[in-house]
Amino acid sequence: MVQIQNVYKFFGQLKALDNVTLDIYDSEKMVIIGPSGSGKSTLLRSINKLETIDAGQIIVDGFDISNPKTDINKVREEIGMVFQSFNVFPHKTVIDNINLAQTVVRKRSKKEAVEISRELLNKVGILEKANEYPGKLSGGQQQRVAIARALAMKPKLMLFDEPTSALDPEMIGEVLEVMINLAKEGMTMIVVTHEMGFAREVSDRVLFMDYGAVVEEGTPEHFFKNPTQERTKLFMSQIL
């Protein structure tokens, strides 16, 4: 699904991504962990070109997005993204949040879009909030709207950028539940998170990044039981 090859990214002097090479398979669930500033969000955001890489190649669903000639909007239609700060559209009702890109980008009729939106709202458990404005919703509910909004595009791949980090503890569960269900349906997912419970339950592979480079990768069990690198051990002991 995603091939990342020898990718570099600089923010001024800072090496945000340092020779990252990575393959993500169809319907794989990958969790990326690492301290803040380790480049994990930058890597995720490079996959739908919210960040432009400085060297290397990223191929998503057969499209070379590092090539400037590739129509990035077409590729992004197939990649859903969920942000730490939700980024729901505050001037639109919940259901219009989900309808918008369906009608504008996918060119679905309003009727068809509403049908899909309602189905997804039901799936994430907030159908009764369809006509509310996001400002009236809790953080957990807003994040579920954001997930539904991304899913409405029927993406082939979902990116999650610390989806629960801005949430109060009691709301993390409701968002993780939606994500776990999605994983069980076979969605390809790349998730930047500190929720090791989520990693343990659904992920096929965990990636530990530090200073822009992949330090260690393996199954969740590997990370819990016997990580090999010193930096990984230290990090695991801090977050568990």
Partner: peptide, 23 residues
């Protein structure tokens, strides 16, 4: 308007003008 609004719109496949007009 927070940067995230533009990013969210673009990540849904909207073009820059579409994101401006609708979001």
């Amino acid at each position: 308007i927070p940067q995230g609004q533009m990013e969210a719109a673009r990540s849904l496949g909207m073009s820059y003008p579409q994101a401006m007009i609708h979001v």
